Amino acid sequence: MALYDYGIGGNEVRVDANESIAEIPSNRTLLVQKLTDDAPSEPECVYGLQTIEDVFERFEPTVQLEHVDAEGNEVKEVMTFKGLGDFGAEKIKENSEFLSGLDIEREQSLKIARQLSSNKALRKVLENPVLREALAEVLSTSIQEINEAQSNSKI
């Protein structure tokens, strides 16, 4: 896209639109992003915000998230952003109880997969239907005992 600038004396000078982007000083920051679900009721001019932290403190951007768990239930969560670093994947997982739980489950699944691929004795147990059933029974009993111990400790 080309723009035209008419300088002194009426001489036409063709200006490439891409050049204007390159002319933005390097010490300027332009932040254009929708940071909340709700649009403002009316535009407002805000003065005196010197840093990005000031902008986040003033506007307190939040977003409501809806997740679906393994059983198909909706899990609602409100995420608040306090700085630009909060938009990274790790920080989002850290600030979200639901996503951090999923991450823990993923890590556990990876550990189990590694065990299955490297533990020959466990693989033999799982290949034999009788031994696999016995292992499942032991695990089920252990889970029940753990749950009972947890419920007794809450009392």
Rank of each mutant, 00 (worst) to 15 (best):
L3T: 11
Y6P: 05
Y6D: 12
Y6F: 13
G10Y: 00
D16V: 05
I21W: 11
A22C: 07
P25Q: 13
P25N: 12
S26A: 05
R28A: 14
V32H: 01
S41R: 10
S41Q: 10
E42G: 08
E42N: 09
E44D: 03
E44H: 00
Y47R: 13
Y47D: 12
G48N: 14
L49G: 02
L49K: 04
E53W: 05
V55Y: 00
E57D: 09
R58H: 10
E60R: 13
P61T: 03
P61C: 05
T62C: 15
H67F: 12
A70Q: 14
G72I: 04
E74F: 15
E74P: 14
K76Y: 11
T80H: 04
F81I: 01
G83M: 03
G83T: 00
D86V: 00
D86Y: 00
A89L: 09
K91I: 00
E97D: 14
L99S: 02
G101M: 05
D103F: 07
D103E: 08
I104K: 15
K111P: 03
I112S: 03
R114V: 01
Q115I: 08
K120C: 02
P129I: 01
V130A: 11
V130L: 09
V130D: 15
L131Q: 04
L131C: 03
E133D: 15
E133L: 07
A134K: 10
L135E: 09
A136Y: 11
E137S: 15
E137A: 12
T141S: 05
I143R: 15
Q144D: 12
N147Q: 13
Q150S: 01
Q150L: 06
S153V: 12
K154I: 08
